[in-house]
């Protein structure tokens, strides 16, 4: 009796081993588990014979029954792991990594703002602080205090949009020099970014554009300081090997005055790219980028600074020009059309 009991239990293991492969889903496998290990399953049925066995056979039979139960459980569990691995595999097969993501709307800064922020960042890093002021200005702040009396030919350099005889749209950010110096004592180290306006509109001029003005006033400021500041500035803004050239020029509010050229970033100052004339610098190897000079003593006088005690430098540059050079924008007018196909290029 014991022998046939033991054989029956072994048969269960063999049967389960043979059939578990046919369970193709977790549901099938559950049915199989119930068939073998359920309360009314095959193992339980087999165990019914245990009660009629003599006490000498019971330990061996019990031990065997336990072994078979463990074996069956292990068989079914291993099949379950197989099925779960298969299911995971199937789920991955349906995963398409190439579908477009659910993208939040993308914003972007205008290229003028991008260039302006970069310029301001470099200059504030050098120790300048940012000031702001009105765009509608008085003639006095915009011209007279800057050594441009009425009927002075230097006023021809800047065609002006007037609101009235004495009020105008600022033609440069330089009135902020005046406003700043009137409101504080030296030392002064400020930059003034902002919109400026000229009565001028053609392929290379828009009636509104952006400038950044810099002003440093202290004891013993020299033109070498100016050159150092601008050299550091353009190196950070463009590249570490950018060369700076000072050309004497004229601005009513600085003396001496200079135009600053930098070595062309496209052709590296060679004037040619692959044998073709460079379109950025027009073969000269230099690109005009800003105007600068030592603050004219007359400007100091008009704001109540003593020109014998203080010297200073000032510089100004056009932001659109920097943006055009840095981002390779060819047409100035695109800046103010705000075509989104243009704007999104500066994300």
């Amino acid at each position: 009796m014991l022998k046939s009991f033991l054989e029956g239990l072994d048969g269960l293991t063999l049967e389960c081993e043979a059939r578990r492969g046919q369970a193709c889903s977790l549901k099938d496998l559950e049915a199989l588990r119930v068939e073998f290990l359920g309360r009314k399953g095959k193992l339980a049925a087999g165990m019914g014979a245990l009660a009629q066995m003599g006490p000498e056979d019971k330990p061996a039979a019990g031990k065997k029954a336990n072994e078979v139960k463990n074996a069956l459980t292990a068989l079914l569990e291993s099949r379950q792991a197989e099925l779960e691995a298969e299911a995971a595999q199937d789920a991955l097969a349906g995963f398409d990594p190439s579908l477009p993501g659910r993208r939040p709307a993308a914003g972007s800064l205008h290229p003028v703002t991008l260039a302006m922020q970069e310029i301001c960042e470099v200059l504030t890093g050098l120790g300048f602080e940012v000031v702001a002021g009105p765009e509608v200005e008085n003639d006095w702040n915009n011209f007279e205090a800057l050594n441009m009396p009425p009927d002075h030919p230097a006023r021809d350099m800047q065609d002006t949009l007037y609101v009235s005889d004495t009020v105008l749209l600022r033609t440069h950010t330089s009135p902020l020099q005046v406003r700043t110096m009137l409101s504080r004592k030296p030392p002064v180290a400020v930059i003034a970014p902002g919109k400026v306006y000229r009565r001028d509109s053609d392929i290379t001029h828009t009636p509104m554009f952006h400038q950044i003005e810099g002003l440093l006033v202290d004891k013993n400021v020299s033109m070498a300081d100016l050159r150092g500041t601008l050299t550091a500035f353009v190196r950070q803004l463009f590249s570490a090997d950018t060369k700076v050239r000072f050309r004497p020029s004229f601005f009513p509010f600085t003396e001496p005055s200079a135009e600053v050229d930098i070595s062309c970033m496209l052709c590296g100052g060679e004037g040619h790219v692959a044998g073709e004339p460079c379109r950025v610098c027009k073969k000269t190897g230099w690109v005009e980028i800003l105007g600068c000079g030592m603050v004219d003593p007359n400007v100091f006088r008009s704001v109540g600074y003593d020109p014998e005690a203080y010297t200073g430098f000032a510089f100004g540059l056009g932001v659109e020009r920097v943006a055009m050079l840095k981002y390779g924008i060819g047409d100035l007018r695109m800046f103010f059309e705000n075509d989104v196909r243009f704007l999104e290029q500066f994300s």
């Binding site: 602080e129 000031v131 440093l216 400021v221 050159r227 150092g228 000072f246």
Partner: peptide, 25 residues
Amino acid sequence: LDRIPAVLPRISKSLDSVQMRDTEF
């Protein structure tokens, strides 16, 4: 003017010029 050397200035500031954060700009 192009032969003027380049020297970085020491920018001195007065405490009055220290601004609050969130300037207009």
